[in-house]
Structures are given as structure tokens and as C-alpha cells.
Design a binder for these strands. Sequence first.
DNA 1: CGTTTTTTGCAACTATGTTGCAATGTGGTA
DNA 2: TACCACATTGCAACATAGTTGCAAAAAACG
Lengths: 139, 139
Amino acid sequence: MHAQVIDTLKKNQLSITDSRKTILQLFMESDGALAHMDIENNTGEEFDRVTIYRTLQTFVEKGIIHTIPSADNAIRYALCKDACSEGHHHDNHIHFMCDNCSTTYCLDHVVVPSLQLPVGFRPSRTDMVVSGCCNRCSK
Amino acid sequence: MHAQVIDTLKKNQLSITDSRKTILQLFMESDGALAHMDIENNTGEEFDRVTIYRTLQTFVEKGIIHTIPSADNAIRYALCKDACSEGHHHDNHIHFMCDNCSTTYCLDHVVVPSLQLPVGFRPSRTDMVVSGCCNRCSK
DNA sequence: CGTTTTTTGCAACTATGTTGCAATGTGGTA
DNA sequence: TACCACATTGCAACATAGTTGCAAAAAACG
Ligand SMILES: [Mn+2]
Ligand SMILES: [Mn+2]
Ligand SMILES: [Zn+2]
Ligand SMILES: [Zn+2]
């Protein structure tokens, strides 16, 4: 068990519970993003579905993980690496979903380009998701 | 009834049915994107849920409409304005979802910027969705 | 028309996500 | 360490999203 798990929970003033420890650990061990189902599969019968949903919600609110939208109706989640805090995310990197292995990557070094929007449109958040063939699958 | 409705269906070699006519008409009259539920609400009990899903699927395959991903688990659809064809979409514009009125706009004149991806990542499609306050709501 | 082919409606099912409430667990304090 | 207040969990029930198989109905086509 990563010491960082407990650390992160404490830093965010969250009580230390089994589900939070296990789920946060899962994120830290995984290089891709995780959907609810991935977590359920990896924790077995250990936690109720509702608990997983609520844990994810809490982590998002605290700025520990961020969401990645998709066109397949399964929201994915990944660890925030920037200085995200309660109610304020700064994950302005792009995401890549592999059509082949369906791994979802945070491309932390590829920044979302800024845009010139038509008059009257005031942006608050930009999601950029590229799909295609990932580096492992294109070998 | 727009003559263009029948026209578009014929051009795509689709048989002319009530559901296709009604749903395509709906898209032509609407300026924003539509989710499945919007269509169900606007057509009453006229069509079965499954028929609506299948009609949307057919329209996407034919290049008549395109999907817009979101983080709220409701895929939205909008008319393709570029020269999209069967199995080949060219809608490289960005989308804007209003946090206030939740209208989803195709910003046809705002082109998705190109990106430098890490080595090995081969893109096939890019979705860029900006959320914030739309021009009508920011007045 | 009548025949062939496509589309539709229905039933049943899976996946995703939310809410209320009682039971349990955690953190802080005596 | 034992107790208490409060936060978190599990369960049941519900809501929305989407899929599949199959028989009935409707289009297309001659
Ligand atoms: Mn990310
Ligand atoms: Mn569009
Ligand atoms: Zn891959
Ligand atoms: Zn608006």
C-alpha cells in the first residue's frame, strides 16, 4: 500500500476508509484512466456499486481525479497531476482513447490549444479527446 | 414538411418511413443538438424508444448526423453540414455546451486545431467540446 | 397488385447513475 | 481506552441509456 494514498486522503481532509484507500490505490497503480466498471471488476465484491460512485464523486470534488467524457456512455476517471484543488480543476491536457485496446491516456504534455469563440460564448471548460491507435497498439 | 427531408433520405438510399421523416425534420428545425430524450419528448408516443435509437444509428452511419460526446451520459446528435458520407465523417468543428440552458451548439466556423501527439499515437478522430455560457444566456 | 426486403414494435435484458434511510465505521475527546 | 458525534457505507428502489431477438407491419420493386 502506497504511503501516498493515506497522504493524499489526509491532505484533502477525507476520512480514511477501506473503499477510498483501495480505489485511490487502484488509480495510482494504473497508467490509463478507469471507468466505474473497471473499478468494480478490480475490487470484486468488496464494495457496493453505490459506494464506488460516491467515492469517485468525492475524489472529483476534491480535485484528486478528473473526468474524461466519451461517446460510449462510460465516464472515465484519471488522477489529476496538476495542482487541482477542491472545486477547481486545472487539467488542461488532452486525452487519447485507443480504438483497439480502449485504453484511455492522459497526454499530460499535450496542452489543449486556445480558441477564438464567436461573440457571446464564454468558455469555462474545454475537453479534447482524440481517438485512434495508441503507441502500444501501433507497434 | 421540408422537401429536403425526403431528398436527404433518398440521396442516402434509405427507405422513406414515418420515423425517419419525423426525426430528420426535427433535426432540420432545431438549431441545437438533440439527445435521444429530446426526440422522445418531441414525438410523443409516436415511436418506440428502440426505433428512435435505430434511426439515430442509421443516420450516423450514413453521415447525416454526427455524435457529440459529453460527461453527462447523454450522447447528443446534430446534422452534418460538411460533406459527410457513409462511414466517413468530416465534422472537424468544435461543440459548445451551455452550462445554463444546456443547449449544445455546432460552432461550424471554429475548426479543431491540429495537435502534435507523442510518437506512436495515430489519431483518427478528434472531439473538442467547450462548455460555459452561451451567447443567448450571457446577454 | 403480389412478392421480397426492410423497418418497426414489443419484450427482455444489460449498463449507468441517483436517492433515502438505517446500520456501521471513523475521528476526536474525556 | 471508551464514548460520542458525525461521516460513510450498504441496501433497496428507482431513473435513464442502450442493445438484442423475433414476429408483425410497412416499403420498395417488379
Ligand atoms: Mn487526464
Ligand atoms: Mn457538430
Ligand atoms: Zn491501444
Ligand atoms: Zn445557454
